[in-house]
């Protein structure tokens, strides 16, 4: 057992896993806001674009997308570095879930708030950026937190295109030690610890943002089923909206 835990391979792998999580999360966040805002636009064409992005990339498993980037596209002359293929696939996939969170949260801001912005004669842009979005962001945090954990887990697939993340290193270590059960048990615990640390970070952010709205922190039970791997169940932020 000690030869597994002391192996530098796993620690190096864990660092790569965290890097991948970070890069993909940043890409996903940008895509989520871009397409989520399109999805809650007043213009039908903008909503259609948002809808298409979400339906397409939510329907496509990140693994399939990543293999397609890595194995298929080079055949038509488009070549990615492995890291880029991995981050792109994960970012596009989780960006689609995130876009639904953004759209759902904006829709979950009470209509009365929108009406107040009209009564104050704000421009559409001001309504969104000064009133609706600031109130929607705290609603987004719990589901975003769940998505981040899901993303951390999902990064394990990059080992299949030879990126040396934690899972990849585990396979190497298994090959050299022949102890499959033990190696992967240790690796599971490592993922678990990383997820718990992220969880603490997210809780802290949630508590801060709830204070912005002057609300009491919500219990996790209400948000746990936000269904981050599900195709956009947004029960945690008040339903799908329309």
């Amino acid at each position: 057992m000690s030869e597994i835990i002391n192996s530098p391979l796993l620690w190096k792998g864990a660092v790569v896993t965290l890097q991948l999580t970070l890069y993909s999360a940043v890409l996903a966040l940008i895509l989520a806001f871009f397409f989520g805002l399109l999805g809650s636009s007043r213009h039908g064409w903008a909503r259609a674009i948002g809808r298409f992005y979400v339906e397409f990339f939510r329907g496509l498993p990140a693994l399939v997308l990543m293999f397609w980037f890595f194995y298929s596209l080079p055949l038509v002359g488009i070549r990615f570095e492995t890291m880029v293929a991995g981050v792109l696939a994960l970012g596009l996939n989780y960006g689609a879930y995130g876009a639904e969170v953004v759209r759902g949260s904006i829709n979950a801001v009470p209509t009365a708030q929108y009406e107040a912005t009209v009564a104050l004669n704000m421009l559409p842009r001001q309504r969104m950026w000064r009133v609706l979005l600031p109130q929607a962001v705290p609603l987004m945090l719990p589901p975003f937190g769940n998505l981040l954990i899901e993303l951390l887990k999902a990064t394990a697939i990059v080992s299949l295109i030879t990126i040396s993340d934690l899972m990849f290193r585990a396979q190497q270590l298994r090959a050299s030690t022949g102890k499959g059960t033990e190696v992967f048990l240790v690796v599971l615990v490592m993922y678990f610890v990383m997820a718990q640390i992220l969880q603490l970070l997210i809780r802290y952010l949630e508590r801060r943002s709830e204070r912005i709205l002057g609300r009491r922190p919500r219990r996790r039970a209400a948000t746990a089923i936000a269904g981050t791997t599900g195709t956009g169940s947004l029960s945690g932020v008040g339903g799908e909206g329309s």
Binding site: A112, Q113, N121, M122, R130, V131, Q135, L213
Partner: peptide, 21 residues
């Protein structure tokens, strides 16, 4: 239902429109 903006304090509720609009 008043519809004050919960993300702003009283003063900002009162100056948001006059300044921005």
């Amino acid at each position: 239902q008043f519809n004050l903006f919960p993300n702003m304090n009283v003063l900002r509720n009162l100056i948001e429109g006059p300044v921005r609009v």
